[in-house]
Write a protein that binds this DNA or RNA. Structure first.
Length: 555
RNA sequence: GCGCCCGUAGCUCAGCGGACAGAGCAGUGGUCUUCGAAACCAAAGGCCGUGGGUUCGAAUCCCUCCGGGCGCGCCA
Protein backbone atom coordinates (compact mmCIF):
# COMPACT_ATOMS: atom_id res chain seq x y z
CA UNK A 1 0.00 0.00 0.00
CA UNK A 2 1.08 3.53 -0.81
CA UNK A 3 0.68 4.51 2.82
CA UNK A 4 3.43 2.06 3.79
CA UNK A 5 5.63 3.14 0.91
CA UNK A 6 5.42 6.73 2.06
CA UNK A 7 6.38 5.70 5.59
CA UNK A 8 9.41 3.95 4.17
CA UNK A 9 10.24 6.92 1.98
CA UNK A 10 10.27 9.23 4.97
CA UNK A 11 12.28 6.76 7.00
CA UNK A 12 14.96 6.62 4.31
CA UNK A 13 14.99 10.39 3.95
CA UNK A 14 15.60 10.78 7.68
CA UNK A 15 18.47 8.30 7.53
CA UNK A 16 19.88 10.14 4.56
CA UNK A 17 19.54 13.52 6.24
CA UNK A 18 21.26 12.18 9.33
CA UNK A 19 24.07 10.74 7.30
CA UNK A 20 24.69 14.12 5.71
CA UNK A 21 24.43 16.00 8.96
CA UNK A 22 21.21 17.82 8.09
CA UNK A 23 19.57 16.16 11.08
CA UNK A 24 21.12 15.12 14.39
CA UNK A 25 21.29 11.44 15.29
CA UNK A 26 18.24 9.99 17.03
CA UNK A 27 16.29 6.78 16.88
CA UNK A 28 13.83 6.90 14.03
CA UNK A 29 10.34 6.06 15.25
CA UNK A 30 7.66 4.27 13.30
CA UNK A 31 6.43 6.86 10.83
CA UNK A 32 2.70 7.49 11.21
CA UNK A 33 1.05 8.12 7.87
CA UNK A 34 -2.54 9.28 7.96
CA UNK A 35 -5.30 10.47 5.70
CA UNK A 36 -5.75 14.16 6.46
CA UNK A 37 -9.40 14.94 7.04
CA UNK A 38 -8.98 18.42 5.69
CA UNK A 39 -9.12 18.87 1.96
CA UNK A 40 -6.08 20.74 0.74
CA UNK A 41 -3.76 18.85 3.05
CA UNK A 42 -2.88 16.33 0.42
CA UNK A 43 -3.60 12.63 0.09
CA UNK A 44 -1.42 11.56 2.96
CA UNK A 45 0.28 13.36 5.78
CA UNK A 46 2.67 12.61 8.58
CA UNK A 47 2.99 14.53 11.83
CA UNK A 48 6.25 12.73 12.59
CA UNK A 49 8.26 15.97 12.72
CA UNK A 50 6.11 17.18 15.59
CA UNK A 51 7.06 14.11 17.56
CA UNK A 52 10.70 14.47 16.62
CA UNK A 53 11.04 18.03 17.81
CA UNK A 54 12.20 17.15 21.30
CA UNK A 55 14.59 14.31 20.43
CA UNK A 56 16.12 16.30 17.55
CA UNK A 57 16.01 19.58 19.49
CA UNK A 58 14.88 21.37 16.35
CA UNK A 59 11.69 23.13 15.31
CA UNK A 60 9.29 20.69 13.60
CA UNK A 61 9.14 22.82 10.47
CA UNK A 62 12.93 22.76 10.11
CA UNK A 63 13.00 19.00 10.57
CA UNK A 64 10.34 18.64 7.91
CA UNK A 65 12.31 20.81 5.52
CA UNK A 66 15.44 18.74 6.08
CA UNK A 67 13.49 15.54 5.41
CA UNK A 68 11.87 16.91 2.27
CA UNK A 69 15.26 17.87 0.88
CA UNK A 70 16.43 14.26 1.19
CA UNK A 71 13.26 12.66 -0.07
CA UNK A 72 13.32 10.46 -3.16
CA UNK A 73 10.88 11.23 -5.95
CA UNK A 74 8.80 8.15 -6.73
CA UNK A 75 6.48 8.37 -9.71
CA UNK A 76 3.34 8.15 -7.57
CA UNK A 77 4.07 11.43 -5.82
CA UNK A 78 3.40 14.81 -7.30
CA UNK A 79 4.52 16.99 -4.45
CA UNK A 80 5.46 17.05 -0.81
CA UNK A 81 4.79 20.14 1.23
CA UNK A 82 5.65 21.27 4.69
CA UNK A 83 2.55 22.75 6.22
CA UNK A 84 1.11 24.10 9.42
CA UNK A 85 3.14 23.51 12.55
CA UNK A 86 5.34 20.89 10.87
CA UNK A 87 3.23 18.41 8.96
CA UNK A 88 4.43 16.91 5.74
CA UNK A 89 1.69 16.64 3.15
CA UNK A 90 1.96 14.25 0.22
CA UNK A 91 0.02 14.69 -2.98
CA UNK A 92 -0.37 11.79 -5.37
CA UNK A 93 0.38 12.42 -9.00
CA UNK A 94 -2.49 12.77 -11.43
CA UNK A 95 -0.81 10.48 -13.89
CA UNK A 96 -0.33 7.73 -11.34
CA UNK A 97 -3.90 8.10 -10.05
CA UNK A 98 -5.36 7.80 -13.53
CA UNK A 99 -3.24 4.72 -14.12
CA UNK A 100 -4.78 3.01 -11.08
CA UNK A 101 -8.01 2.62 -13.02
CA UNK A 102 -6.22 0.04 -15.15
CA UNK A 103 -4.86 -1.62 -12.04
CA UNK A 104 -8.35 -1.93 -10.58
CA UNK A 105 -9.80 -3.26 -13.83
CA UNK A 106 -7.08 -5.89 -13.99
CA UNK A 107 -7.58 -6.92 -10.38
CA UNK A 108 -11.34 -7.22 -10.84
CA UNK A 109 -13.07 -8.91 -7.93
CA UNK A 110 -9.77 -9.31 -6.16
CA UNK A 111 -9.29 -5.56 -5.96
CA UNK A 112 -8.82 -4.46 -2.36
CA UNK A 113 -7.45 -7.78 -1.18
CA UNK A 114 -4.33 -7.50 0.91
CA UNK A 115 -1.88 -9.97 2.37
CA UNK A 116 -2.13 -9.15 6.03
CA UNK A 117 -3.08 -12.69 7.03
CA UNK A 118 -0.38 -14.63 5.16
CA UNK A 119 -2.86 -17.50 4.84
CA UNK A 120 -2.94 -18.05 8.60
CA UNK A 121 -5.80 -20.26 9.68
CA UNK A 122 -8.46 -18.32 11.52
CA UNK A 123 -11.83 -19.44 12.74
CA UNK A 124 -14.73 -17.08 13.25
CA UNK A 125 -17.34 -18.62 15.49
CA UNK A 126 -20.54 -16.64 15.58
CA UNK A 127 -24.26 -16.66 16.33
CA UNK A 128 -24.08 -20.00 18.21
CA UNK A 129 -27.48 -19.22 19.70
CA UNK A 130 -29.01 -22.04 21.70
CA UNK A 131 -31.06 -24.29 19.44
CA UNK A 132 -34.09 -23.89 21.64
CA UNK A 133 -36.02 -21.40 19.56
CA UNK A 134 -35.93 -19.03 16.62
CA UNK A 135 -33.22 -16.42 16.19
CA UNK A 136 -33.98 -12.87 17.24
CA UNK A 137 -32.56 -9.48 16.35
CA UNK A 138 -29.64 -9.83 18.76
CA UNK A 139 -28.55 -12.95 16.93
CA UNK A 140 -28.94 -10.86 13.80
CA UNK A 141 -26.29 -8.43 14.95
CA UNK A 142 -24.05 -11.31 15.90
CA UNK A 143 -24.64 -12.85 12.47
CA UNK A 144 -23.80 -9.71 10.55
CA UNK A 145 -20.75 -8.82 12.60
CA UNK A 146 -19.37 -12.35 12.38
CA UNK A 147 -20.13 -12.86 8.72
CA UNK A 148 -18.77 -9.53 7.55
CA UNK A 149 -15.72 -9.89 9.73
CA UNK A 150 -15.10 -13.26 8.13
CA UNK A 151 -15.45 -11.67 4.68
CA UNK A 152 -13.02 -8.96 5.66
CA UNK A 153 -10.49 -11.47 6.96
CA UNK A 154 -10.71 -13.44 3.73
CA UNK A 155 -9.98 -10.23 1.83
CA UNK A 156 -7.13 -9.55 4.23
CA UNK A 157 -5.46 -12.81 3.26
CA UNK A 158 -6.51 -15.15 6.04
CA UNK A 159 -7.67 -18.69 5.58
CA UNK A 160 -11.06 -18.37 7.25
CA UNK A 161 -13.49 -20.92 8.59
CA UNK A 162 -16.99 -19.98 9.77
CA UNK A 163 -18.47 -22.06 12.51
CA UNK A 164 -21.73 -22.28 14.41
CA UNK A 165 -21.49 -23.97 17.79
CA UNK A 166 -24.64 -25.94 18.48
CA UNK A 167 -25.39 -26.19 22.20
CA UNK A 168 -27.13 -29.54 21.93
CA UNK A 169 -26.12 -30.72 25.40
CA UNK A 170 -26.78 -29.45 28.88
CA UNK A 171 -29.52 -28.12 31.09
CA UNK A 172 -31.22 -25.81 28.63
CA UNK A 173 -31.51 -28.62 26.14
CA UNK A 174 -33.19 -30.76 28.81
CA UNK A 175 -35.60 -27.99 29.67
CA UNK A 176 -36.32 -27.54 26.01
CA UNK A 177 -37.11 -31.24 25.62
CA UNK A 178 -39.47 -31.14 28.59
CA UNK A 179 -41.20 -28.05 27.25
CA UNK A 180 -41.65 -29.70 23.91
CA UNK A 181 -42.95 -32.85 25.59
CA UNK A 182 -45.59 -30.82 27.39
CA UNK A 183 -46.68 -29.00 24.22
CA UNK A 184 -46.69 -32.24 22.31
CA UNK A 185 -48.82 -33.98 24.91
CA UNK A 186 -51.16 -31.00 25.04
CA UNK A 187 -51.50 -31.10 21.28
CA UNK A 188 -52.74 -34.65 21.71
CA UNK A 189 -55.27 -33.61 24.31
CA UNK A 190 -53.31 -34.61 27.41
CA UNK A 191 -53.23 -32.36 30.43
CA UNK A 192 -49.47 -32.07 30.72
CA UNK A 193 -48.01 -29.12 32.67
CA UNK A 194 -45.07 -27.05 31.37
CA UNK A 195 -41.88 -27.55 33.39
CA UNK A 196 -40.67 -24.93 35.84
CA UNK A 197 -38.85 -22.20 33.87
CA UNK A 198 -39.75 -23.86 30.58
CA UNK A 199 -39.85 -22.24 27.17
CA UNK A 200 -43.12 -20.33 27.11
CA UNK A 201 -43.00 -18.99 23.56
CA UNK A 202 -45.89 -19.75 21.23
CA UNK A 203 -43.44 -21.32 18.79
CA UNK A 204 -43.20 -24.20 21.25
CA UNK A 205 -46.92 -24.80 20.88
CA UNK A 206 -46.53 -24.95 17.11
CA UNK A 207 -43.59 -27.28 17.49
CA UNK A 208 -45.57 -29.57 19.77
CA UNK A 209 -48.36 -29.70 17.23
CA UNK A 210 -45.94 -30.45 14.44
CA UNK A 211 -44.39 -33.31 16.41
CA UNK A 212 -47.86 -34.67 17.17
CA UNK A 213 -48.78 -34.46 13.51
CA UNK A 214 -45.60 -36.09 12.26
CA UNK A 215 -45.06 -38.73 14.92
CA UNK A 216 -48.51 -39.41 16.34
CA UNK A 217 -49.01 -40.65 19.91
CA UNK A 218 -46.00 -42.90 20.09
CA UNK A 219 -44.00 -40.84 22.60
CA UNK A 220 -46.88 -40.87 25.07
CA UNK A 221 -46.64 -44.62 25.32
CA UNK A 222 -42.91 -44.63 25.90
CA UNK A 223 -40.90 -44.49 29.06
CA UNK A 224 -40.80 -40.76 29.86
CA UNK A 225 -37.02 -40.46 29.80
CA UNK A 226 -36.87 -42.12 26.42
CA UNK A 227 -39.65 -39.96 25.08
CA UNK A 228 -37.81 -36.85 26.27
CA UNK A 229 -34.65 -37.95 24.54
CA UNK A 230 -36.44 -38.69 21.28
CA UNK A 231 -38.51 -35.49 21.36
CA UNK A 232 -35.47 -33.46 22.31
CA UNK A 233 -33.73 -34.67 19.19
CA UNK A 234 -36.77 -33.95 17.07
CA UNK A 235 -37.08 -30.45 18.51
CA UNK A 236 -33.38 -29.91 17.94
CA UNK A 237 -33.83 -30.92 14.33
CA UNK A 238 -36.80 -28.57 13.87
CA UNK A 239 -35.00 -25.67 15.48
CA UNK A 240 -31.80 -26.18 13.55
CA UNK A 241 -33.78 -26.29 10.33
CA UNK A 242 -35.34 -22.97 11.20
CA UNK A 243 -32.02 -21.43 12.21
CA UNK A 244 -30.39 -22.69 9.06
CA UNK A 245 -33.17 -21.19 6.99
CA UNK A 246 -32.75 -17.82 8.74
CA UNK A 247 -29.02 -17.91 8.24
CA UNK A 248 -29.47 -18.76 4.56
CA UNK A 249 -31.98 -15.95 4.20
CA UNK A 250 -29.28 -13.58 5.45
CA UNK A 251 -26.91 -14.95 2.85
CA UNK A 252 -24.61 -16.56 5.38
CA UNK A 253 -22.88 -19.86 4.86
CA UNK A 254 -21.26 -21.76 7.69
CA UNK A 255 -18.41 -24.12 6.89
CA UNK A 256 -19.13 -26.15 9.95
CA UNK A 257 -21.91 -26.72 12.47
CA UNK A 258 -20.16 -28.02 15.55
CA UNK A 259 -22.13 -30.21 17.95
CA UNK A 260 -21.40 -29.71 21.64
CA UNK A 261 -22.37 -33.32 22.34
CA UNK A 262 -19.51 -34.67 20.29
CA UNK A 263 -17.07 -33.22 22.82
CA UNK A 264 -18.37 -35.77 25.33
CA UNK A 265 -18.86 -38.60 22.89
CA UNK A 266 -15.39 -38.61 21.37
CA UNK A 267 -13.39 -38.24 24.56
CA UNK A 268 -12.27 -34.65 24.06
CA UNK A 269 -13.73 -33.59 27.37
CA UNK A 270 -12.05 -36.43 29.27
CA UNK A 271 -8.71 -35.62 27.71
CA UNK A 272 -8.98 -31.96 28.65
CA UNK A 273 -9.99 -32.85 32.21
CA UNK A 274 -6.97 -35.09 32.53
CA UNK A 275 -4.77 -32.31 31.23
CA UNK A 276 -6.16 -29.75 33.68
CA UNK A 277 -5.84 -32.18 36.60
CA UNK A 278 -2.26 -32.86 35.66
CA UNK A 279 -1.55 -29.15 35.73
CA UNK A 280 -3.35 -28.70 39.04
CA UNK A 281 -6.06 -26.39 37.88
CA UNK A 282 -8.82 -28.62 39.21
CA UNK A 283 -10.18 -28.70 42.75
CA UNK A 284 -13.20 -30.32 44.33
CA UNK A 285 -15.34 -28.17 46.56
CA UNK A 286 -18.91 -28.46 47.83
CA UNK A 287 -19.33 -31.65 45.86
CA UNK A 288 -18.55 -29.97 42.56
CA UNK A 289 -15.43 -29.90 40.39
CA UNK A 290 -13.97 -26.44 39.86
CA UNK A 291 -11.52 -24.84 37.48
CA UNK A 292 -9.22 -22.50 39.43
CA UNK A 293 -9.38 -19.56 37.07
CA UNK A 294 -8.30 -17.21 39.86
CA UNK A 295 -4.86 -18.81 39.83
CA UNK A 296 -4.52 -17.63 36.23
CA UNK A 297 -5.86 -14.10 36.39
CA UNK A 298 -9.54 -14.95 36.19
CA UNK A 299 -11.94 -13.05 38.39
CA UNK A 300 -13.57 -16.11 39.93
CA UNK A 301 -13.34 -19.88 39.85
CA UNK A 302 -15.72 -21.74 37.64
CA UNK A 303 -17.70 -24.93 38.11
CA UNK A 304 -16.83 -27.55 35.54
CA UNK A 305 -18.79 -30.49 36.87
CA UNK A 306 -21.83 -29.70 38.97
CA UNK A 307 -22.51 -31.57 42.19
CA UNK A 308 -25.19 -33.52 40.36
CA UNK A 309 -22.49 -34.93 38.12
CA UNK A 310 -23.47 -33.03 34.98
CA UNK A 311 -20.83 -30.91 33.28
CA UNK A 312 -21.57 -27.16 33.21
CA UNK A 313 -21.33 -24.94 30.16
CA UNK A 314 -17.77 -23.99 30.97
CA UNK A 315 -16.74 -27.63 30.71
CA UNK A 316 -17.88 -27.63 27.11
CA UNK A 317 -16.18 -24.32 26.41
CA UNK A 318 -12.82 -25.60 27.58
CA UNK A 319 -13.09 -28.79 25.59
CA UNK A 320 -14.38 -26.89 22.59
CA UNK A 321 -11.50 -24.45 22.54
CA UNK A 322 -9.01 -27.23 23.10
CA UNK A 323 -10.49 -28.82 20.01
CA UNK A 324 -10.20 -25.59 18.05
CA UNK A 325 -6.58 -24.90 18.90
CA UNK A 326 -4.97 -28.23 19.59
CA UNK A 327 -6.86 -30.68 17.45
CA UNK A 328 -7.82 -28.49 14.54
CA UNK A 329 -4.81 -26.20 14.72
CA UNK A 330 -6.34 -22.78 14.18
CA UNK A 331 -3.72 -20.08 14.52
CA UNK A 332 -6.34 -17.63 15.62
CA UNK A 333 -9.88 -17.99 16.89
CA UNK A 334 -12.46 -15.24 17.04
CA UNK A 335 -15.60 -15.72 19.13
CA UNK A 336 -18.43 -13.26 18.66
CA UNK A 337 -20.49 -12.83 21.83
CA UNK A 338 -23.24 -10.56 23.05
CA UNK A 339 -22.57 -8.23 25.97
CA UNK A 340 -24.59 -10.50 28.24
CA UNK A 341 -21.67 -12.96 28.10
CA UNK A 342 -19.13 -10.27 28.95
CA UNK A 343 -18.32 -11.57 32.41
CA UNK A 344 -17.25 -14.86 30.98
CA UNK A 345 -14.28 -13.41 29.10
CA UNK A 346 -11.64 -13.41 31.88
CA UNK A 347 -12.25 -17.12 32.52
CA UNK A 348 -11.72 -17.83 28.85
CA UNK A 349 -8.26 -16.28 28.95
CA UNK A 350 -7.51 -18.14 32.16
CA UNK A 351 -8.49 -21.29 30.31
CA UNK A 352 -6.11 -20.48 27.47
CA UNK A 353 -3.23 -20.20 29.94
CA UNK A 354 -4.27 -23.39 31.65
CA UNK A 355 -4.14 -25.22 28.34
CA UNK A 356 -0.72 -23.76 27.67
CA UNK A 357 -2.00 -21.66 24.77
CA UNK A 358 -1.04 -18.08 24.02
CA UNK A 359 -4.09 -15.98 24.98
CA UNK A 360 -3.38 -13.68 22.05
CA UNK A 361 -4.57 -16.44 19.75
CA UNK A 362 -8.10 -15.96 21.06
CA UNK A 363 -10.09 -12.82 20.32
CA UNK A 364 -13.51 -12.37 21.82
CA UNK A 365 -15.65 -9.71 20.23
CA UNK A 366 -18.29 -8.39 22.56
CA UNK A 367 -21.04 -6.48 20.83
CA UNK A 368 -23.58 -4.46 22.81
CA UNK A 369 -27.11 -5.66 22.77
CA UNK A 370 -29.81 -4.57 20.40
CA UNK A 371 -33.03 -3.27 21.85
CA UNK A 372 -35.92 -4.03 19.56
CA UNK A 373 -38.60 -1.37 19.56
CA UNK A 374 -41.85 -0.91 17.82
CA UNK A 375 -43.00 2.68 17.61
CA UNK A 376 -40.78 3.62 20.55
CA UNK A 377 -41.91 0.75 22.73
CA UNK A 378 -39.46 -1.93 23.82
CA UNK A 379 -40.18 -5.45 22.63
CA UNK A 380 -39.00 -8.27 24.88
CA UNK A 381 -36.67 -10.81 23.34
CA UNK A 382 -36.24 -13.63 25.77
CA UNK A 383 -36.74 -17.10 24.38
CA UNK A 384 -37.34 -18.55 27.79
CA UNK A 385 -40.11 -16.26 28.93
CA UNK A 386 -42.52 -15.93 26.10
CA UNK A 387 -43.31 -14.41 22.79
CA UNK A 388 -40.92 -12.37 20.82
CA UNK A 389 -40.32 -10.92 17.43
CA UNK A 390 -38.15 -13.24 15.44
CA UNK A 391 -35.26 -12.31 13.20
CA UNK A 392 -37.21 -13.85 10.35
CA UNK A 393 -40.09 -11.41 10.83
CA UNK A 394 -37.70 -8.48 10.90
CA UNK A 395 -35.92 -9.67 7.76
CA UNK A 396 -39.20 -10.11 5.93
CA UNK A 397 -40.56 -6.78 7.14
CA UNK A 398 -37.56 -4.60 6.58
CA UNK A 399 -35.49 -6.47 4.01
CA UNK A 400 -32.24 -8.36 4.33
CA UNK A 401 -29.97 -5.66 2.91
CA UNK A 402 -31.42 -2.95 5.09
CA UNK A 403 -31.20 -5.08 8.23
CA UNK A 404 -27.65 -6.10 7.44
CA UNK A 405 -26.55 -2.55 6.78
CA UNK A 406 -28.21 -1.18 9.87
CA UNK A 407 -26.73 -3.82 12.14
CA UNK A 408 -23.32 -3.44 10.56
CA UNK A 409 -23.04 0.32 10.44
CA UNK A 410 -22.44 0.88 14.13
CA UNK A 411 -19.32 -0.03 16.06
CA UNK A 412 -19.83 -3.22 18.06
CA UNK A 413 -19.34 -1.44 21.37
CA UNK A 414 -22.20 0.94 20.74
CA UNK A 415 -25.53 -0.11 21.96
CA UNK A 416 -28.36 0.24 19.49
CA UNK A 417 -32.10 0.47 19.23
CA UNK A 418 -33.79 -1.16 16.30
CA UNK A 419 -37.20 0.36 15.78
CA UNK A 420 -39.28 -1.70 13.41
CA UNK A 421 -41.65 1.15 12.55
CA UNK A 422 -38.77 3.52 11.86
CA UNK A 423 -36.88 0.93 9.85
CA UNK A 424 -39.88 0.42 7.61
CA UNK A 425 -40.75 4.09 7.35
CA UNK A 426 -37.26 4.98 6.31
CA UNK A 427 -36.92 2.17 3.88
CA UNK A 428 -37.11 4.66 1.02
CA UNK A 429 -34.85 7.25 2.59
CA UNK A 430 -32.22 4.82 3.62
CA UNK A 431 -28.44 4.75 3.35
CA UNK A 432 -28.79 1.27 1.92
CA UNK A 433 -30.58 2.62 -1.11
CA UNK A 434 -28.19 5.51 -1.37
CA UNK A 435 -25.33 3.07 -1.83
CA UNK A 436 -27.19 0.63 -4.01
CA UNK A 437 -28.55 3.45 -6.13
CA UNK A 438 -24.99 4.45 -6.99
CA UNK A 439 -24.37 0.92 -8.19
CA UNK A 440 -27.59 0.86 -10.19
CA UNK A 441 -26.67 4.21 -11.72
CA UNK A 442 -23.27 2.92 -12.76
CA UNK A 443 -24.89 -0.13 -14.28
CA UNK A 444 -27.32 2.09 -16.11
CA UNK A 445 -24.53 4.21 -17.58
CA UNK A 446 -22.77 1.11 -18.80
CA UNK A 447 -26.03 -0.16 -20.34
CA UNK A 448 -26.61 3.11 -22.16
CA UNK A 449 -23.05 3.09 -23.44
CA UNK A 450 -23.46 -0.42 -24.73
CA UNK A 451 -26.73 0.45 -26.44
CA UNK A 452 -24.96 3.27 -28.24
CA UNK A 453 -22.20 0.92 -29.29
CA UNK A 454 -19.55 2.55 -27.13
CA UNK A 455 -16.81 0.26 -25.86
CA UNK A 456 -14.40 1.21 -23.14
CA UNK A 457 -11.75 -1.21 -24.31
CA UNK A 458 -8.78 0.76 -25.48
CA UNK A 459 -9.87 3.88 -23.64
CA UNK A 460 -6.91 5.94 -22.52
CA UNK A 461 -7.06 6.49 -18.77
CA UNK A 462 -4.45 9.22 -18.92
CA UNK A 463 -7.24 11.46 -20.19
CA UNK A 464 -8.71 11.32 -16.70
CA UNK A 465 -7.72 14.54 -15.01
CA UNK A 466 -10.93 16.25 -13.98
CA UNK A 467 -10.93 16.95 -10.21
CA UNK A 468 -14.02 14.81 -9.73
CA UNK A 469 -12.55 11.94 -11.73
CA UNK A 470 -9.48 12.07 -9.56
CA UNK A 471 -11.50 12.41 -6.38
CA UNK A 472 -13.41 9.28 -7.31
CA UNK A 473 -10.21 7.36 -8.02
CA UNK A 474 -8.75 8.54 -4.74
CA UNK A 475 -11.77 7.22 -2.91
CA UNK A 476 -11.61 3.89 -4.73
CA UNK A 477 -7.99 3.52 -3.70
CA UNK A 478 -8.96 3.60 -0.04
CA UNK A 479 -10.62 0.20 -0.09
CA UNK A 480 -7.46 -1.78 0.80
CA UNK A 481 -6.83 0.59 3.70
CA UNK A 482 -10.38 0.13 4.94
CA UNK A 483 -10.00 -3.64 4.76
CA UNK A 484 -6.78 -3.42 6.71
CA UNK A 485 -8.40 -1.17 9.30
CA UNK A 486 -11.45 -3.40 9.68
CA UNK A 487 -9.32 -6.54 9.91
CA UNK A 488 -6.77 -5.25 12.42
CA UNK A 489 -9.36 -3.65 14.67
CA UNK A 490 -11.95 -6.38 14.15
CA UNK A 491 -14.28 -3.54 13.31
CA UNK A 492 -16.39 -4.34 10.27
CA UNK A 493 -18.47 -1.17 10.60
CA UNK A 494 -15.74 0.80 8.82
CA UNK A 495 -16.92 -0.80 5.61
CA UNK A 496 -20.34 0.74 6.00
CA UNK A 497 -18.89 4.22 6.39
CA UNK A 498 -16.63 3.65 3.41
CA UNK A 499 -19.51 2.47 1.24
CA UNK A 500 -21.36 5.71 1.96
CA UNK A 501 -18.28 7.78 1.12
CA UNK A 502 -17.67 5.94 -2.10
CA UNK A 503 -21.29 6.19 -3.22
CA UNK A 504 -21.33 9.87 -2.39
CA UNK A 505 -18.14 10.46 -4.35
CA UNK A 506 -19.65 8.70 -7.31
CA UNK A 507 -22.82 10.80 -7.22
CA UNK A 508 -20.71 13.95 -7.22
CA UNK A 509 -18.62 12.69 -10.11
CA UNK A 510 -21.83 11.93 -11.97
CA UNK A 511 -23.04 15.48 -11.45
CA UNK A 512 -19.91 17.07 -12.86
CA UNK A 513 -18.68 14.62 -15.46
CA UNK A 514 -20.86 13.44 -18.26
CA UNK A 515 -19.79 9.95 -19.20
CA UNK A 516 -21.73 8.98 -22.30
CA UNK A 517 -21.54 11.92 -24.66
CA UNK A 518 -23.11 12.17 -28.08
CA UNK A 519 -20.59 14.77 -29.18
CA UNK A 520 -18.02 13.07 -31.46
CA UNK A 521 -15.35 15.34 -30.04
CA UNK A 522 -15.81 13.63 -26.67
CA UNK A 523 -15.34 10.13 -28.05
CA UNK A 524 -11.97 9.43 -26.41
CA UNK A 525 -12.98 11.01 -23.13
CA UNK A 526 -16.14 8.93 -23.08
CA UNK A 527 -14.14 5.76 -23.53
CA UNK A 528 -11.73 6.75 -20.76
CA UNK A 529 -14.60 7.60 -18.43
CA UNK A 530 -16.30 4.32 -19.18
CA UNK A 531 -13.19 2.63 -17.88
CA UNK A 532 -13.35 4.72 -14.75
CA UNK A 533 -17.01 3.87 -14.29
CA UNK A 534 -16.34 0.17 -14.77
CA UNK A 535 -13.62 0.37 -12.14
CA UNK A 536 -15.94 2.22 -9.78
CA UNK A 537 -18.47 -0.52 -10.24
CA UNK A 538 -15.88 -3.12 -9.29
CA UNK A 539 -14.98 -1.29 -6.10
CA UNK A 540 -18.54 -0.54 -5.06
CA UNK A 541 -19.70 -4.08 -5.81
CA UNK A 542 -16.79 -5.46 -3.84
CA UNK A 543 -17.64 -3.28 -0.87
CA UNK A 544 -21.27 -4.34 -0.99
CA UNK A 545 -20.27 -7.97 -1.33
CA UNK A 546 -18.00 -7.71 1.71
CA UNK A 547 -20.99 -6.42 3.64
CA UNK A 548 -23.06 -9.28 2.30
CA UNK A 549 -25.38 -6.93 0.47
CA UNK A 550 -26.67 -7.15 -3.05
CA UNK A 551 -25.33 -4.88 -5.78
CA UNK A 552 -28.37 -4.32 -8.00
CA UNK A 553 -28.05 -3.56 -11.72
CA UNK A 554 -31.30 -1.66 -11.47
CA UNK A 555 -33.74 -0.69 -8.77
C1' G B 1 -21.39 -2.68 46.02
C1' C B 2 -17.84 -4.63 42.07
C1' G B 3 -16.64 -5.44 36.64
C1' C B 4 -17.24 -4.31 31.25
C1' C B 5 -19.41 -1.01 27.34
C1' C B 6 -21.55 3.73 25.94
C1' G B 7 -22.68 9.48 26.69
C1' U B 8 -20.40 13.84 20.05
C1' A B 9 -25.79 18.30 15.77
C1' G B 10 -33.23 17.77 16.91
C1' C B 11 -32.79 11.91 15.98
C1' U B 12 -29.42 7.52 14.79
C1' C B 13 -24.38 7.36 14.85
C1' A B 14 -18.76 7.92 12.44
C1' G B 15 -14.30 10.00 14.08
C1' C B 16 -6.72 4.59 13.83
C1' G B 17 -3.04 10.55 20.18
C1' G B 18 -2.50 15.11 15.54
C1' A B 19 -4.25 20.59 11.42
C1' C B 20 -10.81 24.29 11.40
C1' A B 21 -15.13 17.73 14.99
C1' G B 22 -18.15 14.62 10.29
C1' A B 23 -22.21 11.54 7.84
C1' G B 24 -27.23 9.78 7.26
C1' C B 25 -32.22 11.05 8.63
C1' A B 26 -35.60 15.11 10.06
C1' G B 27 -36.21 20.52 9.15
C1' U B 28 -35.13 25.41 5.66
C1' G B 29 -34.03 27.26 0.56
C1' G B 30 -32.60 25.91 -4.41
C1' U B 31 -31.45 22.33 -8.96
C1' C B 32 -34.44 17.61 -13.85
C1' U B 33 -35.01 19.75 -22.67
C1' U B 34 -29.04 14.98 -23.14
C1' C B 35 -25.95 9.01 -19.01
C1' G B 36 -31.57 7.01 -13.47
C1' A B 37 -33.75 13.63 -9.01
C1' A B 38 -33.80 6.72 -4.74
C1' A B 39 -29.46 12.25 -6.86
C1' C B 40 -26.98 17.12 -6.25
C1' C B 41 -26.09 22.15 -4.09
C1' A B 42 -26.58 26.01 -0.21
C1' A B 43 -27.54 27.89 4.53
C1' A B 44 -28.58 26.27 9.46
C1' G B 45 -27.53 23.25 13.55
C1' G B 46 -22.04 21.40 18.61
C1' C B 47 -18.98 24.42 26.27
C1' C B 48 -17.60 16.29 22.02
C1' G B 49 -21.96 14.42 29.74
C1' U B 50 -18.96 17.00 34.22
C1' G B 51 -14.38 18.27 36.69
C1' G B 52 -9.25 17.22 36.95
C1' G B 53 -4.60 14.97 34.91
C1' U B 54 -0.78 13.05 31.14
C1' U B 55 1.21 15.24 26.34
C1' C B 56 4.40 19.82 22.02
C1' G B 57 -0.90 18.29 20.89
C1' A B 58 -6.92 15.00 23.88
C1' A B 59 -13.61 13.83 21.28
C1' U B 60 -9.58 10.00 21.45
C1' C B 61 -5.24 7.98 26.97
C1' C B 62 -5.69 8.07 32.88
C1' C B 63 -8.71 9.41 37.32
C1' U B 64 -13.47 11.75 39.79
C1' C B 65 -18.48 12.48 39.50
C1' C B 66 -23.33 12.30 36.74
C1' G B 67 -26.54 9.52 33.23
C1' G B 68 -27.79 4.86 30.29
C1' G B 69 -26.96 -0.56 29.00
C1' C B 70 -25.10 -5.44 30.34
C1' G B 71 -22.99 -8.76 33.78
C1' C B 72 -21.61 -10.45 38.88
C1' G B 73 -25.72 -18.79 39.05
C1' C B 74 -23.45 -25.81 40.39
C1' C B 75 -28.21 -21.27 33.19
C1' A B 76 -25.62 -20.47 28.45
Amino acid sequence: MIKDEIAELVHHAIEEAQKRGALPTFDIPKIPVERPKQEGHGDFATPVCLQLASSARMAPVRIAQAIVEHLAHPDYLDSVEVAGPGYMNFVLSTRWLAQQVEVILRAGERYGDIDLGKRRKVQVEFISANPTGPLHIGSGRNAVVGDVLANVLVAAGYDVQREYYVNDAGTQMGLFAESLYARYAQALGQDEPMPEGGYQGSYMVAMGQRAAREYGRRFLDMERSEALKALGDIGLKYTLESIQADVALMGIHFDHWFSERTLYEDGTFDRVMALLRERNYIVERDGAVWFTATALGGDKDEVIIRSGGAPGYFASDIAYHYDKFVRRGFDWVIDVWGADHQGHVPRMYAMMRALGLDPKRLSIIIYQLVTLKRGGEVVRLSKRTGDMITLREVLEDVGVDAVRFFLLSRAVESQMDFDLELAKEHSNENPVYYIQYAHARISSILRVAQERGLESDGGDVSLLSHPMELALIRRMLMLPEVIELAATNLAPHHLAAYALDLASQFHVFYRDCRVVSSDPADYELTRARLKLVRAAKIVLAKTLRLMGMSAPEQM
